[in-house]
């Protein structure tokens, strides 16, 4: 996973709420068995509408997505995260996220930033007024900055550390393999196996 410390980039205002993962990447795209090539599936149905914001040339190359509340609800498909990253997004800012999507994002190094609705709307308005405006997302300082304004956001220490170091969870857990073995020896004897 690519480490994340601070990122500055242009932003796309997506003024929709309840952006479920079926919209982020429709099911037909989930048939792939590789981890790459999902950028064309990002918002595939919505992108057929020429007036959809991602089709606006002014926002090409933007790397921060500013969404209405409840981004990434629904299906657990991590393909949603892959599609956003492969399209070029490094950060999604919203007032609320679906739990599984947020988890998946932090496993992959896509930063989900929770800010109050008013702040998200302030950022959306700024990106609408001037698509070239740049926003800085500083994970080290837990802060989002726009010009002279700044807002702090919350993220737990552990996840922040893991993102900043770009660490893979599995490697971290395998350090505790002995604890897992001890636990396994004490499991209730009636628990089922699939064999």
């Amino acid at each position: 996973m690519e480490a994340f410390t601070t990122h500055t980039g242009r932003a796309v205002p997506l003024r929709r709420s309840n952006v479920d993962t079926d919209q982020i990447i429709p099911a037909v795209w989930l048939k792939q068995v590789s981890r790459t090539g999902f950028e064309n599936g990002l918002f595939a149905a919505w992108r057929e509408d020429p007036s959809f914001i991602l089709n606006n040339p002014a926002y090409q190359g933007a790397s921060i997505l500013l969404s209405g509340p409840d981004f990434g609800t629904g299906s657990s498909r991590e393909h949603a995260v892959w599609a956003l990253q492969q399209y070029g997004f490094r950060v999604v800012i919203a007032a609320r996220f679906g739990d599984i999507f947020r988890n998946n994002s932090t496993k992959m190094g896509l930063l989900p930033v929770i800010l109050p609705s008013e702040v998200v709307e302030r950022l959306q308005a700024a990106a609408e007024a001037d698509p070239t405006v740049e926003i800085t997302v500083d994970l080290a300082e837990r802060e989002v900055r726009l010009g002279s304004e700044s807002w702090s956001f919350e993220i737990d220490d552990y996840t922040r550390w893991r993102l900043m170091e770009g660490l893979d969870d599995i490697g971290l857990t395998l350090r505790h393999a002995d604890d897992v073995a001890v636990y396994e020896n004490g499991r209730q004897p009636w628990l089922p196996t699939t064999v």
Partner: peptide, 23 residues
């Protein structure tokens, strides 16, 4: 019982555990 993404599927396959905060 809860849903997980593919990175976590890999994690469970490899370790039979998941790191998680209690909701």
């Amino acid at each position: 019982a809860f849903g997980i993404g593919t990175s976590e599927v890999e994690h469970v396959l490899a370790t039979q555990t998941l790191p998680a905060y209690r909701p």
